[in-house]
């Protein structure tokens, strides 16, 4: 029983990573109705920027805030320059665009900062949290930041006019234009916010997985999986999805013989697909009802 409790706790600790990334995924999905395959790489690039600032002597929180702002602007810039011209192109062409962006960002980061692993600091310290060896103060801090972000997003979407406008633009662009919303800018704003949230996720994840250009590959897949599990339309669902995936993964690694580290991911994904087959809109997503 103690083993079980410990594994659940450890699962929650890794789950915080996924939850954080899943929030960024939900954000972009709300804005553009797609999963951005380059999102992890964008987050990695942001994290490197903050690392560079700290190397230049900027204190942690200064670098943190500057990076979030720069990432926000960068996300908008990428949308305006690269993806706005593709707005009328077929969906699959856009997906190819994400793949191209992935290749570019990954390669440029590798050239600037090379592929060696770098230490990344944490503002929360890394001593055991409340005396538990399984969860560190950093991981606890991550859970805290994720929940704060979630609350912030909830407030933004439910209680601000611009949040309402973004939701409208995402769900029915034509109707949104007919009430006077500039849908094109709502998409750019979505990119900016997703990029900023991704940056926060990256900076929180980096102390755990270490900083290098390929650090986000695995994390993004878990982020997708968590977001899809929770329901892509629900930030709360994404966060819960993240924790669930973290716990699943740990329990599968512990209790299913022969699974080990290698098969953790496929098993977690298989489980998610099983959930989706039963509940196609995810655990907390709004089912899409179509009138014919």
């Amino acid at each position: 029983m103690e083993l079980f409790a410990n594994q659940v706790l450890a699962g929650i600790a890794t789950g915080a990573i996924y939850a954080c990334m899943a929030l960024a995924v939900v954000m972009i999905y709300q804005a553009i109705d797609h999963l951005n395959f380059a999102q992890g790489e964008m987050a990695m690039f942001s994290t490197f920027m903050s690392w560079q600032m700290m190397q230049w002597g900027v204190p942690y929180w200064g670098a943190f805030i500057l990076t979030v702002i720069l990432s926000f602007a960068g996300g908008i810039l990428i949308e305006r320059l690269l993806f706005k011209p593709l707005a009328k192109a077929p969906v699959l062409t856009n997906v190819a665009g994400f793949i191209a962006l992935f290749a570019i960002v990954n390669s440029v980061a590798g050239l600037i900062w090379d592929f060696t692993i770098k230490q990344y600091p944490t503002p929360f310290g890394s001593s055991p949290f409340l005396g538990s060896q399984l969860i560190s103060t950093h991981q606890a801090g991550m859970v805290g930041v994720t929940l704060l972000l979630l609350a912030g997003l909830y407030f933004f979407f439910q209680f601000t006019r611009i949040g309402l406008a973004m939701r409208a633009a995402a769900s029915l662009p034509e109707s949104a234009r007919l009430v006077g919303i500039n849908t094109s800018w709502m998409i750019a704003l979505g990119w900016g916010m997703a990029s900023a949230i991704g940056a926060i996720a990256g900076m929180l994840i980096a102390p755990v997985v270490f900083l290098e250009p390929n650090m986000m590959g695995g994390v993004l897949i878990y982020g997708f999986a968590s977001a899809v599990l929770g329901g892509l339309s629900s930030p709360l669902g994404a966060v819960i999805g993240g924790f669930l995936v973290g716990v699943f993964e740990n329990l599968a690694g512990t209790y299913i013989p022969g699974v080990g580290n290698e098969l953790k991911l496929p098993i977690a994904l298989a489980l998610i697909i099983t959930v989706l087959v039963v509940k196609p809109a995810g655990l907390f997503g709004r089912p899409i009802v179509k009138r014919v």
Binding site: R161, L164, A165, S171, L172, A176, G180, V289
Partner: peptide, 19 residues
């Protein structure tokens, strides 16, 4: 009609006044 079907009636009305 272009109703925002997944939003509440009140949110639809607020969207009308969004500008």
């Amino acid at each position: 009609r272009g109703t925002f079907t997944n939003m509440t009636v009140e949110e639809n009305l607020q969207l009308g006044a969004i500008t």
